[in-house]
Design a protein around this nucleic acid. Sequence first.
DNA 1: CGCGAGCTTGACGTTGTTCAACTAGAGTGG
DNA 2: CCACTCTAGTTGAACAACGTCAAGCTCGCG
Lengths: 229, 229
Amino acid sequence: MGTKVFPSCENCNCISTPFKFLSPEQLAFINRNRVEINFKKGESLLKQGTFTSHIIYIQTGLIKIFSEDSPSNLVLSIESKGYFLGLQSVFHPHKVPYSAIAFEDTSACLIDIKAFNKLIQENAKFAAGMLKRINDDSLRSYERMATLGLKQLHGRLADLLLCLSIRIYKSRKFRTSLSRRDMAEITLMSNESLSRVLKQMKDDKILQVKANHFEIIDIQALRMLSKVA
Amino acid sequence: MGTKVFPSCENCNCISTPFKFLSPEQLAFINRNRVEINFKKGESLLKQGTFTSHIIYIQTGLIKIFSEDSPSNLVLSIESKGYFLGLQSVFHPHKVPYSAIAFEDTSACLIDIKAFNKLIQENAKFAAGMLKRINDDSLRSYERMATLGLKQLHGRLADLLLCLSIRIYKSRKFRTSLSRRDMAEITLMSNESLSRVLKQMKDDKILQVKANHFEIIDIQALRMLSKVA
DNA sequence: CGCGAGCTTGACGTTGTTCAACTAGAGTGG
DNA sequence: CCACTCTAGTTGAACAACGTCAAGCTCGCG
């Protein structure tokens, strides 16, 4: 976990929607109450059951958020650039209800939760933006519930591939740092099943796969798989 | 859908945590901006895709909240007395993201969303209480994701029975208005599987079941089933 | 060249669904 | 009061989906 000091929040290129509502003074204030941390692949960003001390803003990289309640872990979501990790704890402080680890090298800003809270109370637009984020998370958790509950192997993998292509890498063609094991964990299937379904999608000319390089050939077919099963 | 006018919010016996934070004037204000509606079994309280006009506070009865996105519907949660339906839309107005219907005769207060919003902005404690509610919902949705994703038939049914006994009916022994078909829909299994698992639990002396009358004999065994599978 | 980790493939067993037959209670009409 | 039907629920048998186990493959690295 290296620590670097970047110039300041005012001229940060990671600035995203809710931050835009902050005044220059407020940005300067946040700048004084943050540290920037680089997490290596596999390192933990957040541990379930600890007390919240920071909001973690993801600048680059890829993380998984997962629950450690059950005997086996459950991946709740995967997130990348622009995600606010731990937001729920701002509005309702308690022990954090999930863990997060880096799927690949990830850089993040840790913002002191008290400072964050102060801005929430000062700036209604900023607060509203954060509430919208919480809402969006909640809606996506319903979608994931549907994926896991209703769909079978092909549909679940189709959903993951669409998520990677659209939300994460924003390209039809991408290289991922997820291993097959990771993908199997996310889609809740065995490694062997993942391998088989992937092979079938290759045979069906839906995908081109070589090691970690993926290219979606027939996105329409993927969407169909996502709908039907 | 009959309409009745009750005395007022000030002496309502349904008053619950976030309402307690309201001043007498604020309670009177809410009283002027609500209607009380009785829904019959099977009637719709909320339809996915419509615009939010009210917050629906459940006074008595039982409802299911479900998503109509997927080819088959997915029950997101079941709720009873004291639940605020549609809360997410207060903080982020948009089309409602799920539907809700009554599992049994249900009485509810429909509170105008603009009035509700006004109180949120006037009264920080009230607002915080509502945010806590949203958070709790979100955490329970993670639990449900784990139930549906990780557990098999016995575990899923155990979770439903524990939920009914603890959260809904608050008794080891209860009569439910849920049909076997409803229970199968909630636990995402076929009617036949539900019947078989239920029979096995009877044979194993975990439950006593007669028509819609349930009595949990061995709650420890249920918890075990919920954990393991 | 050989070794090991991650991935793939095939054979087989388990879990859960589907289909079809059967049962029990709740109306309905004679 | 008794057939008759209708629906909800139960039960059994066949089948499909998926996981598990074991063996083989591939590729990077010592």
